[in-house]
Each structure stands twice: as C-alpha cells, then as structure tokens.
Design a protein around this nucleic acid. Sequence first.
DNA 1: ACCTGAACACCGTTCAAGT
DNA 2: ACCTGAACACCGTTCAAGT
Lengths: 226, 226
Amino acid sequence: MTAAPRSRRERPAKPALTREGIVAAAVAVLRAEGLRKVTMRRLAQELDTGPASLYVYVRNTDELHAAVLDELLGTVGPAPAEGSWRERLERVLTAYTAMLLEHPSLARSALTARPSGPHYLRLIETLLDLLRTGGVPRAQAAWGVDLLLQHATATAAEHAGEEPTGDWQAAARALREAPAATHPRIAADAGLLLSGTPEARLSWAFRALLNGIERTAVPTEGQETP
Amino acid sequence: MTAAPRSRRERPAKPALTREGIVAAAVAVLRAEGLRKVTMRRLAQELDTGPASLYVYVRNTDELHAAVLDELLGTVGPAPAEGSWRERLERVLTAYTAMLLEHPSLARSALTARPSGPHYLRLIETLLDLLRTGGVPRAQAAWGVDLLLQHATATAAEHAGEEPTGDWQAAARALREAPAATHPRIAADAGLLLSGTPEARLSWAFRALLNGIERTAVPTEGQETP
DNA sequence: ACCTGAACACCGTTCAAGT
DNA sequence: ACCTGAACACCGTTCAAGT
C-alpha cells in the first residue's frame, strides 16, 4: 500500500525529509521491530539525519505514535454489506480489534492519545450508522460507540509486552489457588473465570456491550461538554 | 498506613534494603512525582545505593510497577453494606476507578501487567459475589467481572499523560468539524458524542455493562482454558 | 547471599549555529 | 525556513568484583 523499497538494503540517495516520510519510516520500523524501537533517534538514523531534524515535522513522540496509528487504521477494510446490523457491527469491531492486536503496544498508546485522523472518523461514522440502523436511540448510540471502541482498544492493549514469563500466568495461578475459605466465589468459579478462547470472549463482550447499550437510557441532562 | 517519616528531609541512616522498602519508596515517588519518575535509578538514588542492588529484590521495572499497584489497591475501602446489589456494585467499581484516576499511568500499566495480589483477588471476589446476589448466571458473572474491571482500568488509563496541549482537544475538534456530506451521523450527533460529565458517563457505562452482562448468555462450550 | 561501581547500549528534547 | 551537531539530563539492565 505504501511505496515499495527498490532493494533490500539500498540507501535511496537520502530522500527529502517530510512528515509523510517520517511516518512511513515509523510504520516500517513498527512492523519490523515493534513500537519500542519507534523512537526519534532510531527514525533519525533510519532517515540519515539527526534527531533534532524530526522536530520540524513532529511535535513529540506521542504525536508520532498517533500518526502511525492513523496510518494503520487505513488498512482496515470497509464495513461489510451483508448480514444483520448486529452481525455487521460485530464484524467491523472484530476487524478493528484484529488490526490492533497485530500491534498491541500501539493500542496501548491509542488509549491515551485519542486518534482523530480521517480513518478513525470514518470508523465512528460507520458504528454510529449501524447503531442507528438498529434503532438504538441517538444518545445511547453516541455514548455506546465510545464504549465499543474502548473495549476493542483495551483488549488489544492488554496483550502489549507479554511474550516471556507472562505475569498473566501468575494471575491465573492466583485465581486457581484462591482458598475457598476466604474466596468462595472465586474457588467455585475459577474455571469459568479463565474459560473461553479469546475469540469467544471478544464476541461475547461485543454482544453484551450491544445489549447493554440498547437498553440503558442516557441521563436527560446529557447535552453539555465537559 | 505505611511507616511515617521521622522528619521531612532527614536521611534515616540508610535502612536495610528489602523488597518492601523498595516498594514503599516507589509508592512515595509515585505520589510525589508520578510513575514516570518511578525508575530503578531514581529509586536506587532514593535508597542511597546503586541501581544494580534493586535487582536482587525485583525482577524488572514492570514487576515493580505491578507491586506498586497492588499496594495502592489496599487503600480502596471494603464493599458498602447498604443499597441494592446494583448500587453496591456501582459503588465498588466507582471507588476502584477513582483510585486509579489518581494515578492514570499506573492504570495503563495495570492493563498490561495483570495484577494478581491479594487486594485484587478480594475485589474480584466482591464483584463475583454481588453479581451472584443479583441472580446473574455463574458463567456470565465470571466473564462479566473481567468486562467491568477492564472498563474501570481503561477509563482511568485514558487519562494518562495528558495535561498540556491534550490531543484529545484535537479529537473533539475533528468530531465537531466533520463535514455533514461525508459524515452525516457524526455531524448530526457531535454534541451527543462529546456530552456528559465524566461521572455521568462512567455511571452510565457501568449500568450498560451490567444490563448487558445480565442478559447475554455465554456460549455453551465455555469451559476450557486457552 | 547480598551488594556495588562501572559499563553497555540506549532514550527525548533543546539550543545555538549553520545553510 | 529548514536542518544539524552537540549537549543536557536521563533510562534499563548486566557483569565482574567485592564483602
């Protein structure tokens, strides 16, 4: 989708520095080595310049990460045309989550640095439209979009920086070994707490969210901005 | 709750290094200057030693942050005894969220590094118990606890690292200025998308989550661990 | 065992100076 | 305007050596 490299390791005669070029380099490093390596210094090195030069085009590291996310958001396909509005909604959200799961650390960033690029706007428009199609009242649809996107983002973010001796192992163990005397509910349902594939849980969560959004009225004063 | 300092800036004759001492120092630095300053080097300096010494008691920075969170979780009071199960549930979750909102960057960490300390277990037990009191089926209660805690954590995490020229301002502007031609739903409902106080939205979200959890069945095979 | 100085391999950001 | 070298003020983690 972005410009193809002419050959594996050929330095392309130092292209002019542009914001787009910086973001493209950032995406490349992200895909190859993860967000942890997407640093000002590394990018400067990649672009054959000094780190100070990047600050002409990018305010800081956070803004750079936000720009990278917006770029990747473009790779998520359009909303499916078939199926019920519920199915379509779930499919759009699942596709978005899948994209974020390829770069969990970026999801983590997205939670803090709200994206506001064109691709993100389009996603919101799609979700809003599907909810309205389903007859969800306007205010509930508006607040619901936030809830749905937050769940998708947070779920992906949870998978950031795991891999080795995952401390989630410890959490599972703590749950399974909770003494029935002090934690009767956990002891009785530890299996259920840890059950289900990630896919099954994600699907269930989206459906639960949707069911909740549909039947929970927004307070009447909900009109002014914080 | 932890040992009181004898005087504001008196060096306490170099106390013996312990894991507890390190975590206590970490909590102090967190409260005073935020998580960004809770670094191995800074803590070593605070404890009058070299950074290498800390690695005897703490595997790495992530583990340290997790230990700090577990410590703070102890400051959240017990579940309220009065009110309906719904009200009590909402109050427990709101108290948890409020604690995390005092340290949003820690919430961000918690999303990745699942806490598994005694305080976290107690919170899960409480939530599970309240849901069962409300007659929510066991499997739904089990999966629901995750959803509720994730929302609390993610909501707090969203407030990490903002303060100055918040790029959330940009997101709000993008929403308000979306052209009606291409984004009719957003244009029509921008006000609603941005409406409501944080408290109102949090309360609505918890109630919507609860409503959804109550009436969304978990798939029947939901028994094995990933 | 516990503790440490020193080193390795990095960071973000700013500033004064150049073109 | 745009670009840069150099500097400032930091990081996490490891290792060989000490006690």
